[in-house]
Simulated scan of single mutants.
Amino acid sequence: MGKEVYTVDLDKPLVFQVGHLGEAYQEWVHQPIVSKHTPRFFESNFCEFFTRTVWWVIPLVWLPVVAWNQLVSVQRGMTLLQAATLMLAGVFVWTLMEYSLHRFLFHIKTSSYWGNTLHYLLHGCHHKHPMDGYRLVFPPAATALLAIPFWLLVRLLFPYNAVPAAFGGGLLGYVMYDVTHYYLHHGNAMNEVTRKLKKYHLNHHFREQTNSFGITSALWDWVFGTLPYVKQQ
């Protein structure tokens, strides 16, 4: 007899089921369910609460932190122009981080129970339910934890007075990324630029999931050769 294939029950909490898919997880998670339904992740209401985030919480929580970091750099002796320049540099560096995290971490191949489970929590859930509006942006608690190693890295690379401004710029880039990501799924294109960006991102979900890793722009996809395939006429 062949090995029994595990089936995920979509009407039950999903997180501790998906690990049982083993090697079948990759195929399952990249077959999207196109609805605005928000599936349940955990039996525990406490754990479930921390998996759902409305988009406006991101700028509400993090933009004051960005502003505070800029102020601290100025208080440490930087000019406003210097702090603003570092902030813009941080935003630019974030775009590379955005691409790298999406390509090499969020799309890592897993097959073990805990590998599948962690991947589903990190990014797989978004590919399975791409229109779930409550799981399109990162919960602030998770962002704070992920920001710690980046803060430590910035402290190593920059002088004391520049650290807050540089870190704040990267954080601003993250806010722009998360808000843009939500808009690409749930907003109406307002002009040709947003229409193309929306089409570009949805191509990643529904056609070529091994390309189009940039969210806020296609810059690094162009640099590293992961632009979507263009059919020749």
Rank of each mutant, 00 (worst) to 15 (best):
V179M: 11
Q233S: 05
E23G: 10
L88H: 01
V54S: 09
M78Y: 12
L156F: 15
G225P: 10
F106D: 00
A83Y: 12
P139L: 05
L136M: 11
V65S: 03
F213K: 01
N211G: 06
V65E: 03
W28A: 00
L60M: 14
M97S: 07
H107W: 09
P59D: 07
A67W: 15
F206I: 08
A165T: 08
V15I: 11
Q82S: 06
F104D: 04
P13H: 02
L86M: 09
G77T: 00
N188W: 15
L80C: 09
H204S: 02
T143S: 14
T226L: 09
Q31Y: 14
P159C: 05
A144K: 10
A162H: 03
P130N: 02
K12R: 06
Y25L: 11
Y25K: 06
F50G: 02
S73M: 14
M131R: 07
H102L: 09
V8G: 04
L171Q: 05
P140T: 00
G173Q: 10
G22P: 04
T38R: 15
T53H: 05
K128F: 12
L121E: 04
F42I: 06
A83W: 15
T143Y: 15
H127Y: 08
A67I: 05
G225S: 09
H126A: 04
V18Y: 09
T226R: 03
